Amino acid sequence: MDINSDLGESYGAWRMGDDAAMLDIVSSANVACGFHAGDPAGILQTLKQAAARGVAVGAHVAYPDLAGFGRRNMDPSSAELVGDVIYQIGALQGLATAAGTRVRYVKPHGALYNTIAQDARQAGDVIEAIQAVDPQLTLMALAGAPLIEWAKERGLRVVAEAFADRAYNEDGSLVSRRLPGAVLHDPQQVAQRMLQLVQTGEIETITGKRIRLQADSICVHGDSPGAVEMARCMRERLLQAGVSLQPFVSMA
């Protein structure tokens, strides 16, 4: 199993999360590309820290929405979205090269992530952009979403992910952040539900019903309060149960 987190999201004097601590826990890092968060100097520092620890790096592409942290819905034209995603991957590739590592996958962020899980047009734009830059890049997508099959049909390798710190609806979608209970904060609860997912392939929804969910990576949001403790507790619980933790992409 892989553990990933959204990192590189600090912006100037605005500090977001604890990248150094999280990089000691995760096996993959989704690094901001400057559109929803992150400044070049901070992103470069995060990439250097990831390289030093052997953590796989992915481009955390987003809508151009610094004020809304990439969590506001947008409807860009296909030309705009393709260009934006290419631009972000390319920027992170340059910084990654300078840091002694490379971009191995792409994980859309926030509103873009949730939109392309179901929206065929925007999903196609993101797939087109990834293939234009490097068709060998892996796409990380929401487990159970139509996007997974759309990307596979276009020849992309796809890795399905589950969210440790987010509540699920019965259809496998994430509960809106606007609703109570959408974000989980108890490290022990988070660790136990992720162990259950790994061992049984099931996760408990916000209504208490269990649903099937196939995932090869687990995300803990780096900006969540107590994110480091949640990630550390989950890692320890999985290792104690004999679960092997490693990046889902080759580091060769």
Rank of each mutant, 00 (worst) to 15 (best):
R157L: 11
D19R: 00
A56F: 00
W14Q: 09
K152F: 11
I86N: 08
I203M: 08
A167P: 00
A231T: 06
T46C: 14
A227D: 07
R237Q: 12
A56G: 03
N169Y: 04
L44G: 06
Q45A: 13
G58W: 05
V103M: 10
G100P: 07
Q49V: 05
A91D: 06
K107Y: 08
A59F: 11
Q188D: 15
N73W: 13
I203G: 07
S28I: 01
N30T: 03
A37C: 09
Y113Q: 08
V159P: 03
L238G: 08
A51C: 08
Q240A: 15
M74R: 10
Q246V: 04
P180C: 03
P108Y: 09
P225Y: 12
A32L: 10
V133D: 11
S77A: 11
Q136R: 15
S176L: 10
G83F: 04
A129N: 05
V106P: 00
P180H: 00
L23R: 03
Q45P: 02
M140C: 09
A79N: 10
W150P: 02
A123R: 03
A167G: 05
G54H: 05
A91L: 13
G42R: 00
L174R: 02
C219H: 00
L47I: 13
F163R: 06
L112D: 03
R212G: 13
M74D: 02
E149D: 15
G208H: 03
G34L: 04
P146T: 13
G54E: 02
I211Y: 07
A51E: 00
E202A: 12
G201A: 14
N73D: 14
R166Y: 06
A191H: 02
V57A: 01
P64R: 13
F248I: 11
D119G: 09
I89T: 00
A182L: 04
D223I: 05
G222L: 00
C219G: 09
M230L: 15
V198D: 06
A99N: 06
G94F: 01
A123L: 08
D186C: 05
D186F: 08
Q240G: 15
L184S: 01
I86S: 11
V133L: 09
R53Q: 10
G222K: 00
C233V: 14
L81Q: 04
L47V: 09
A151F: 06
Q118R: 14
Q118Y: 12
E202M: 14
E170A: 15
G208F: 10
S244W: 13
S217W: 03
C233G: 00
L184Q: 05
D165G: 02
V85I: 15
A215H: 02
A129L: 11
V133R: 08
G17Q: 01
S224C: 10
R157H: 14
Q93N: 14
A167D: 03
V126Q: 02
G83K: 07
G54S: 07
S224I: 06
G38P: 07
W14R: 12
H60P: 04
E161Q: 15
G58Y: 05
G38V: 10
T200G: 07
L137N: 10
A51P: 04
D65W: 05
S244E: 12
D65R: 02
A98G: 01
Q188G: 02
L156K: 01
G70E: 12
